[in-house]
Design a protein around this nucleic acid. Structure first.
Lengths: 208, 208, 208, 208
DNA sequence: CATGAATGAGGATTCATTCAT
DNA sequence: AATGAATGAATCCTCATTCAT
């Protein structure tokens, strides 16, 4: 009676489930969630419409999995980078490296990011998942940078703020909207700003 | 037999058209474009479903008008503020004022902003409109700040960057997601960062 | 937001709603509820599939209305008959008249009765509606027959039992299943049994 | 390439086929034929969905077997009872015994009876099977009661009629719908009526 | 024989858009 | 201009049945 969704164990099944997720990933990227229908996902995955519901509870469930996959693709390289931060290092080299990494990650995943972020507005579940991702990233990076002595105060606020900055710049950068903007110059502003952020201390703040 | 959309001249008609736009504005804010149907818009506007197509080519057309309205609501106060910038002024007072203004504007329009921004991804027209808005704001503000001597180099890049920063912070601030963040402290970081931005000069840049 | 179902006021609309109910009535009669699809109902009613959902919440809602219509068709003639029972009357003439009336009513509505009764098993709503009908019939008839002095004891049990008997005989009679049965003779048994029922009194009962 | 349905010879196979029938029996009882799907039947039977089609031509075929099983369960105790009717006996004791037996049988099988009877309306095959059952019961019982001298005229009509009465009373009794009915009293009416039926003779009939 | 993954036609429902009044 | 009933294509999802293993 209870609706059952296959939890694929066989390699072939896992691969098929992944094909469906990939098809969803692509289509949501290209035309968005609401403009994608399940038949099209099935077609692109090379399976029947029926089997989609063998692996997923409903269309929304595909979205959930696509979101997870995206999260993973975004977080993995960042975490990996920060795992290598043990030795003494120079902030002036680190920040540009990070900026480049995020720009690249964004280049590869910009479209799905947009598509998923769009749902954030109406879909609590996706919104929560995004928050979870930000939380995890912020806390982990803040801890690391505090541990290695790079940031002394307001670590979480700084990290989160830096991530926001990077995020919106990456968006600008990838879509390259405005032709009156010199993006290489803007990139330098970003790098300087983030680098400066680390050094800011409470006492500095004349606005407090 | 070209499809004709009435361009209302009568006052009563204009008011009716506006009521439809307002209803769309509200509903798109509340549940997003895709979860709003035209019948509901008509009902909320207090008109018949049929007449909606007397004033708008299609559902998308309502979205276009809602977007325009939103743009206007956002830009007007900002432009008005910058019209008053003739006299000498202190950056340390100006930036916090601007930040507060943007935060307030965002508070009032956050939902529709999200809803519209969501469509940016799949809808070229909305996306273009957003770009136009950013262009206009950036160029006008950059000119002003250059004219009054506040910014000397890279004015457009700085202004645009500052707007991005403000934008993403406002998003954070309004939705107030993460409980491990002290938003008043983060706000100070934003103010300092933007203030510092004005003073940055080419020569300063050791990363170039 | 709330799903709205038109409550038709216009004559034309009422007629259209009735056409849909009639189409449902016919189709449920012919092939049963589960073997009827909404498109077919719409087609037979001469309307579009969409408008069906303008008048009915869902397919089940059509069933509800069909049930109501059936109830009305069954009860009306019976109630009318019993309204005329004021004058002194002869049971030996009354019972055969009633039997014939029920047989005729059954002949006209046998199929839909079967179709609806079938749903009784899985559908609480229909089941309740049937019970309501039986209750109403039983109580009203029992009261009448007690008032006119025809039944002295256990009126409701007797009436209900007589209705059951008539019901199942009518079913047999209409479908005329078994060729080894002489139905005219069986009809006499039914008449005698029901007639006898009225006269049974408590004291008579040697099995008590 | 005629579709082949295995006629299981192996004990293990027969047992498996029976498990499927039992599962169908239960599920049809609980939620009806149309609300039961083959996957669920297979699951409850502890077999794969595929093998169901090794033993049954289609879903309908399971229904056929379930019907047969039901018929058997109903008829066996009745026939057994009537086999013992050789000695002289008292009708006043026999009828209550039969009534109780039928009530019990109905209690155990009411749900499946309802479920199957429901299909009678649209399904010729099931309908025919029901008729066959009634035929067999009626003729066999009528013969017996004539042989032992209990009924002299219209035996088949009387037996069939009595069965109908019992049937509908059992339905009432088991589902116990109406709270304004005293069912123990109604039961006495049933017993008296059926007992009286035996004695009715042609000549008695003043309505002829 | 057995498995359970896979198929795809079919069905209920929604909704942007049109049209008779 | 205005109404709101009507249209029907499109969409999500189910399930009897088949098939590769």
């Amino acid at each position: 009676m209870a609706k059952t969704v296959r939890e694929p164990k066989q390699e072939r099944s896992i691969e098929k489930k992944n094909r469906i997720i990939d098809a969803g990933y692509e289509l949501f990227s290209e035309v968005g969630y609401y403009n994608t229908n399940t038949a099209e996902i099935a077609r692109r995955a090379g399976v029947s419409t029926g089997i989609v519901y063998g692996y997923f509870r409903d269309k929304k469930d595909i979205l959930r999995e696509v979101t997870k996959l995206y999260m993973q693709r975004i977080t993995t390289p960042i975490f990996e980078l920060f795992e290598t931060l043990d030795k003494p290092f120079e902030p002036r080299k680190l920040v540009p490296a990070i900026v480049d990494m995020v720009l690249n990650a964004h280049k590869d995943n910009a479209k799905i990011h947009e598509a998923l972020h769009a749902l954030t507005h109406t879909d609590k579940e996706i919104s929560d998942e995004f928050i979870r991702l930000e939380d995890e990233l912020t806390l982990r990076i803040a801890k690391k940078l505090t541990d290695v002595g790079l940031i002394k105060t307001d670590a979480r606020e700084k990290v989160h703020f830096a991530m926001d900055i990077l995020q919106s710049f990456a968006h600008e950068y990838v879509y390259d909207h405005h032709d009156y903007i010199d993006y290489s110059r803007m990139k330098l502003l970003v790098i300087r700003t983030i680098t400066a952020l680390a050094g800011l201390s409470h006492g500095d703040n004349e606005f407090a």
